[in-house]
Amino acid sequence: MNIKQLLLKRLAEIAESLSKTPNALALLGVGSIGIELDRMDGYSDLDFFVICKEGFKERFIEDLDWLESICSVSYKFRNTEDGYKLMFQDGVFCEFAVFEPQELKNISFSGGRIVWQSEEFNMKIGVSANLPIDKAVDIDFSIGEALTNLYVGLCRYQRGEKLSAYSFIQVYAKDRVLELITTIEKPQDIKKDVFNITRRFEYRYPNKSSILSKILVGYDNIPKSAEAILEFLDSNFSINTEMKNKILELCHI
Rank of each mutant, 00 (worst) to 15 (best):
D47A: 02
C71P: 02
W66E: 08
S69D: 07
F60G: 09
K76D: 10
P22S: 13
L18I: 12
R10D: 08
G42E: 10
E95L: 00
L27T: 08
V92D: 08
D65V: 11
F49S: 12
A15T: 11
E58W: 13
P101G: 07
F96T: 12
F48G: 03
G31M: 05
V98C: 10
I107H: 08
D65I: 08
F60K: 15
Y75F: 14
F96E: 05
G55N: 07
E58M: 10
L28Q: 01
P22A: 13
R10H: 02
E13M: 11
Y84V: 08
E58D: 13
L67E: 08
F48I: 04
G55K: 05
E36C: 02
E81T: 08
E95F: 05
K85N: 02
K85C: 03
T80N: 05
L25P: 15
E54I: 07
F96V: 13
Y43M: 02
S74G: 10
L86E: 05
C52I: 07
F48S: 11
L86A: 10
T80Y: 07
D65E: 12
L28W: 00
K20V: 09
Y43T: 00
V92P: 06
K76L: 11
E13V: 06
L11K: 09
E58R: 12
F56K: 12
I14R: 02
S72K: 12
D45A: 09
K76W: 09
C94R: 02
L64K: 04
D45M: 06
E54T: 15
F88R: 08
S32N: 09
D41W: 01
L18Q: 14
A15Q: 03
K76N: 04
K105G: 13
I70F: 08
E81Y: 14
F96Q: 06
L25I: 09
A26I: 01
D45Q: 06
A12Y: 11
V73N: 12
K20R: 15
M87I: 08
I51L: 09
S72E: 13
K57D: 05
I107K: 02
P101A: 13
E54H: 12
K76Y: 08
N23H: 15
F93G: 03
T80R: 07
I14W: 04
K105D: 14
V92T: 09
D63L: 06
T80P: 11
F99G: 04
G42I: 00
E54V: 14
V73L: 11
D41L: 02
S72Q: 10
I61D: 00
N79P: 07
I61S: 03
D90H: 11
E16I: 12
K9P: 00
M87E: 12
N106L: 02
M40Q: 04
K105P: 01
V50R: 06
A12Q: 14
W66S: 06
D38H: 06
M87H: 11
I70G: 11
K53E: 15
A24Y: 09
L18M: 14
Y43C: 01
G42T: 00
E16K: 12
Y84F: 15
R10V: 10
F99N: 01
K53H: 11
K20D: 13
V30L: 01
D65F: 13
E54S: 14
G55Q: 05
Q89M: 09
L46R: 03
K85P: 00
G31I: 03
V30A: 00
C71Y: 09
L37Y: 06
A26Q: 07
L104Q: 03
I61G: 02
I51F: 05
L46V: 15
N106W: 10
E100D: 07
V92L: 15
L67S: 14
S19V: 07
S69Y: 01
